[in-house]
Design a binder for these strands. Structure first.
Lengths: 154, 154
DNA sequence: GGCAAAGAGTACCCATGGGGTCCCATTTAG
DNA sequence: CTAAATGGGACCCCATGGGTACTCTTTGCC
C-alpha cells in the first residue's frame, strides 16, 4: 500500500483550497468546500499552523491562509507536518537500532530509495498540486550507466 | 511517514538471503540468519510463495528458493505481494468512490506521483537490493516536456 | 462593554489492521 | 513409520489513524 494517511491527504486538499483564495478562509468554509468533516479539518489545520505552513487569524472573521506562496510550499513539507519525517522503513528513520545492521545490506538501499522519494516530493510544490492539468510529470530514474535510457519502459 | 510495513521489510531481507544461496533454505535457517522471529518469517514466506515469487519444497529437507533469478524480481513485486497494489492514496486505488472526484484536482497529481514511485520500484531488482554497495543511485526528475509525459502514462 | 464568532489546546474514544503466535494437515526424505 | 519440513488457517493484541467533544482565548461588531 505504501499509503500516506488520510489526514495528510486532507491537508493537501485543504491547502490546495487555500491556494485558490486570497484572504483568510474559515474552517467551516474549507470543510464544506472539501467534503471533509469539520472537526477533522480543524484538527488538520491546527497541525499545519503549528508547523508554520499556514497562518491563522483568530477571533471573529478569522480563519486560515497560506503562510507562504503556494509555489514555496512543497508536498514533502505537508506530509512531514502531518506524519513526521519521511521514512520508508523503520531503519531509515533516525534512531532505530536494527539488531543486525552491520549484516543488513538492504538498509543502505532503502536509504537511497527513501532519499529518492523524499527528493521527488520536495520537488513538487503546492501550486503544481493545485492544478489538475499540471503540465509536469514526475519520474524516477536510475542515475548511472548506459541502460538508464530504458529504465522507464517497463 | 509513508512507511512500508515491517512484514514487507522482512520479505525483502528474506528474499535477499535467498538470493545469496544456491539450493533451498529452511525457514529456520532464514529466520536465524535475519534475526526475524521464525513464525513471522514463515508467514511472510508463505505469502511470497502464494504470490509466486519464491518456490517452496515441502517435506523433510524442504525450504524455499527464489522462483526466478534475483535480477528478474523487482522490489515493487515484493511490496505488492505483501501489501497489495501500490497506492499512495486511497483515491489512487482502484475502486474508490471519492465523493467529489470531479472537483478534486489533487487526485490526478497523486496518481502521477504514485506512478512515479511505482515505476521507480519496478526498476529496482532484488539483485541490486542485495548488494549494500549497489553502484546505482536513484533520483527523481521532473519531466516538463510533453514527450516524457507520454512515456509514463500506462 | 458585552456578545458572538472564530481558532487553540487537549483529552478522549473507537475501529482497523499490522504484527505476531499457535495449531493441525500435508508432504517427503531416510 | 517417523521426523522434518511447509501449507493454511484461526486467533490475539495493541498501536495508531481517524474522528469527536469540550473548554479556553482572541477579536470583530453592535
Amino acid at each position: 500500500m505504501l499509503r500516506i494517511s488520510k489526514l495528510t491527504d486532507y491537508a493537501v486538499v485543504l491547502t490546495t483550497h487555500l491556494a485558490d483564495t486570497a484572504g483568510v478562509t474559515s474552517v467551516r468554509a474549507l470543510a464544506e468546500g472539501s467534503a471533509i468533516p469539520e472537526p477533522t479539518a480543524a484538527k488538520v489545520l491546527k497541525t499545519l499552523a503549528k508547523a508554520g505552513l499556514v497562518d491563522s487569524v483568530r477571533g471573529a472573521h478569522g480563519g486560515y491562509r497560506l503562510a507562504r506562496e503556494a509555489t514555496a510550499i512543497t508536498v514533502a513539507e505537508i506530509i512531514e507536518a502531518i506524519e513526521g519525517p519521511i521514512a520508508v522503513t523503520e531503519c531509515v528513520d533516525a534512531e532505530s537500532e536494527c539488531s543486525l545492521e552491520e549484516q543488513c545490506g538492504v538498509r543502505a538501499n532503502w536509504q537511497r530509495i527513501n532519499d529518492a522519494v523524499a527528493t521527488a516530493l520536495q520537488g513538487i510544490t503546492l501550486a503544481e498540486m493545485a492544478r489538475p492539468d499540471a503540465p509536469r510529470l514526475f519520474q524516477i530514474r536510475k542515475a548511472d550507466s548506459a541502460e538508464t535510457a530504458r529504465s522507464i519502459t517497463r
